[in-house]
Design a protein around this nucleic acid. Structure first.
Lengths: 154, 154
DNA sequence: TTGTTACCCATCAAATCCCATGGTAACGCT
DNA sequence: AGCGTTACCATGGGATTTGATGGGTAACAA
């Protein structure tokens, strides 16, 4: 089968009910990849943002677990499994394509009123716009885009 | 077929009758995995918390026993079987999704008023919140989440 | 009897659904 | 190219449903 990749970016608003529209293109990609109207979202490991995947992520994680630890249980394996499955949330989106950000996701990402989506093929990141600029630099490719989108919102 | 995994986390209260709501998502996963409205819960081997599984756990344990000891009885096999089947309790949950924690489970886990659920794919852990922070560290991924949820409860 | 377990019902807040609006990009006709 | 129409998407608000939790009481067992 053909592989489908997340691509593009978007700056969307988080409303008073913590709802956030997932970019339409991402939803298409997601549904082609997994057939599900839900995403897996959790804290990123190496950056202060969130990461989103299709639901097949859990199966890939399970495969990683088997490959890395085989049937041998240990504290290390426990920690890996806990972080992998425990910290990632399964977020279904409604007909209008919105997910609800839990307090934890908002807290760990710093996201409050605006969320910047940027794709990366197999997954995509969700950033607090200002934080991306601080983290990646205002002159980085992503930083420029964010700044530009922020300016466009007056 | 698709595999179903436990995922996500929750901080729930234990009431005066020792009742504890199993997170809705875990119940869904459990029922998809086993078709039963009950869980297997017992002390964790490597951490001071509880572990929960779907009821198929007993069958998997039996398979492990057969594979590992192949019908040869020994002290080692007895110990394994005793721990596996003896220490785990089968806990049915009611229509509102609550299990009742036995005194043993409360004692070995230290859980009293609050219980923190965190998933790990094939199983999930249930912790005394403060104990998780002490055991895993306040800055560990899970530790942060717990602290945050505790703070959110005023 | 005394404490536990199993139902039942009540409540509050959070999550979900449904409908509505405004903006904009795509399209097609002249 | 210019213009208007259409379609889709992000977003807001209200109403409904679901989930977590507390409390009462009858059935049961030690």
């Amino acid at each position: 089968m053909t592989a489908f990749f997340f691509h593009g970016y978007a700056l969307n608003a988080v409303d008073a009910k913590n709802r956030l529209s997932v970019p339409s293109g991402y939803r298409d990609t997601n549904e082609k990849r997994s057939g599900e109207k839900q995403l897996i979202v959790g804290p990123a490991e190496r950056a202060p943002c969130l990461v989103g995947y299709d639901v097949l992520r859990f199966e890939r994680l399970q495969a990683q677990l088997n490959e890395r630890f085989a049937g041998n249980y240990s504290d290390e394996r426990d920690d890996f499994a806990r972080d992998a499955f425990g910290l990632n949330e399964s977020l279904p989106y409604d007909e209008t394509g919105r997910i609800i950000l839990s307090p934890s996701l908002k807290f760990t990402s710093g996201i409050d009123k605006l969320a910047f989506f940027i794709a990366a093929g197999d997954y995509f990141e969700i950033w607090h716009p200002q934080r991306l600029i601080e983290h990646k630099g205002a002159t980085s490719p992503a930083g420029r885009i964010v700044q530009q989108l922020l300016d466009a919102r007056k």
